[in-house]
């Protein structure tokens, strides 16, 4: 659904000359002092499959916000291409770009970005209004979406009357209202309290089940990335350091930087049972877990029984996991 190739963003005068050149590798301070340029993002390529949740994780200044803004050209990339559902965003003319923004992609913002002068209903209907949908219809649809995010009958409130969590539900509703195929999330929950954040993450998981969307999700919170992402890209100094499933990132960090990041993550929380299970065999079993679930879900079962656990997929046994397998994962957590 999203396909990015060789994407660069360089700020400063005559940015084009820095792209791909040796100067791009100069230390940040020197590049700025000598040429007046800053490289925000370098040589990014990625593909997001339909229905996939792709998480980009990095600390502030790593270029992740730049990346997500380049997808719909809120920021103009210096070079490279972005395809959205087959359409070339980077080559799109003004009208084509508007159509893509109006129909295909929508975005949820870090500080909610609600328009303070509008009611909740009109905030949610904003995208439809820009598209030219009639007042009655867009209000009806917006009301339905507000209900979906758990804010029924609050349409006449103004944003400032809401808590942060509620505001971001409105932000989410606004993005959903245009019924886009692709949703972009720019650190949507970073401004929320931990408890609310957790609740909102559950909301995303729920939404994913109910409405199938392709999502690109930016965060600086590793646990959020691990919780939500089908795949995770770790970003540093404008480039991807590693792209992989949560398990790959945790189990096989690409370098010291990533390793430091994931050091404290309990392996059993990210490693799926499939990667440590043995071949399928006959019972008896202590219990069963779904293929794809994390190792820690088997911990309780093997702890109370000597028997192995059966891994099932669609009711069929695909493998077995015994106490040794589980312990081999847990043992690495302390290293």
């Amino acid at each position: 659904m999203i396909s990015v190739r060789d994407l660069w963003k360089v700020y400063g005068p005559r940015a084009q000359r820095i792209v791909g050149a040796a100067e791009a590798d100069l230390p940040r301070g020197d590049l700025q002092a000598r040429f007046g340029n800053v490289v925000a993002m370098r040589d990014i390529s990625l593909d997001v499959a339909p229905g996939e949740v792709f998480v980009v994780m990095g600390l502030s200044g790593s270029g992740k916000s730049t990346l997500i803004r380049c997808i719909t050209r809120l920021i103009e990339p210096t070079s490279g291409t972005v395809l959205v559902d087959g359409a070339d965003v980077t080559a799109a003319g003004k009208d084509e770009l508007l159509q893509i923004r109006r129909h295909k992609v929508s975005m949820v913002f870090q500080h909610f970005g609600l328009l303070p002068h509008r009611t909740l209903l009109d905030n949610v209907a904003f995208g439809l209004e820009l598209r030219g949908v009639g007042k009655a219809e867009r209000r009806e649809r917006a009301g339905g979406v507000l209900e979906l995010v758990g804010l029924p009958s609050m349409g006449d409130y103004k944003p400032h009357q809401l808590s942060g969590g509620q505001q971001q539900r409105v932000g989410l509703a606004r993005a959903l209202a245009t019924n886009p195929d692709i949703m972009l999330f720019d650190e949507p929950f970073s401004a929320l309290d931990p408890l609310i954040r957790r609740e909102m993450q559950d909301e995303i998981v729920r939404l994913r089940r109910e409405v199938s969307k392709t999502m690109m999700f930016i965060t600086h919170d590793l646990s959020e990335a691990l919780r939500l992402g089908d795949r995770i890209a770790i970003m540093r100094d404008g480039r991807f350091v590693q792209v992989g499933t949560p398990a790959e990132v945790v189990m096989e960090p690409a370098d010291e930087y990533v390793a430091n990041f994931v050091r404290d993550v309990p392996r059993s929380h990210v490693v799926p049972v499939d990667s440590v299970m043995g071949p399928a065999s006959e019972g008896p079993f202590a219990g069963e877990v779904e293929s794809g679930s994390k190792v820690r879900e088997a911990v309780g079962l093997v702890a109370h029984s000597d028997l192995p656990v059966r891994v099932v997929s669609g009711g069929r046994t695909v493998g077995t996991l015994d106490r040794v397998g589980v312990l081999s994962v847990i043992a690495t957590e302390e290293s």
Partner: peptide, 19 residues
Amino acid sequence: VANEVGHSFGATSLQQLFK
């Protein structure tokens, strides 16, 4: 962010100004 919201939902220049 308010400007980005407008643009990200496909506001034209005039829509951005008035809305």
